[in-house]
Amino acid sequence: MSKKVLVLAETREGALRNVSFEAIAAAKQVSDGGEVVAVLLGDAVSEFGAELINYGADRVVTVEHPHLKHYTSDGYGQALMAVVEQESPEALVFGHTAVGKDLSPKIATKLQSGLISDVTAIEGEGDDAVFVRPIFSGKAFEKVKNKDGLLFFTVRPNNIAPLAKEERSGDVSSLSVDITNLRTIIKNVVRKSAEGVDLSEAKVIIAGGRGVKSADGFAPLQELANLLGGAVGASRGACDADYVDYSLQIGQTGKVVTPDLYIAAGISGAIQHLAGMSNSKVIVAINKDPEANIFKVADYGIVGDLFEVIPMLTEEFKKVM
């Protein structure tokens, strides 16, 4: 049976996030030919409508309100529920992002629905769709089906391929919603993520461990990350030693990432760290210790001093890129 699917699209630093295009592709797969409606919430977002159509949305609904400038679960919750009431969708798809993770349980509760979080693949189509998601931070996987009622899931960034972008036409309409009684007031957002590349969406991650030895030791890693348009991550050891902020920690506690390329420098490869990164497409290990566990999951390894190897790698990439 065809389903009407609502997709929550998100912007970050003045552009649509890739995960929104990925969510549209996921929506198409479960819609069985039904309509895919993308929703944009914010203070000024209607300019992004056309691009969502080009990535496969059939229609876009925007809600613009000064109270939606910053995300709050109350503000976004009210706006999204108003769209749900107008559209009566049979399925909902969010990105598994800071916003998606925070908002989806609230909406699922209001709709008395299940919620399949952090989906990395969808097998089958329409009503037969089965959702693959990591458990134990990627040490294992489970396949989940929706049993009852509305279908609701969030997709992990970087895992589901977006549809090809093409010139399409579709309606972009706005819905006026009264946003009231916000119980949370956002005072300030302090940017800590360097260079604006978010770890969860990065295609390339250069991660450092205790072997990096100091906060300054991360500089050559950051330089390589900048060159490759990637982000810097870290093992728990490096965070515990205060070389970098905990927000960069990759592992079973910390972030779970699946970039195209993961370069582990001076990371021994504790089981908790492997849980957070071993599903990356290609893994490179650089470590002085040839016995280090990290070589067991690496596609390519170099036994050597990261402070020699990383700068050489940066120079070599500069030559060919």
Binding site: I116, K139, A140, E142, K143, V144, K145, K147, D148, G149
Partner: peptide, 13 residues
């Protein structure tokens, strides 16, 4: 409290 979703398979990567 009947579950709305169902795990049909668990496996290792």
């Amino acid at each position: 409290v009947e579950a709305k979703t169902e795990t049909i398979e668990v496996y290792l990567p």
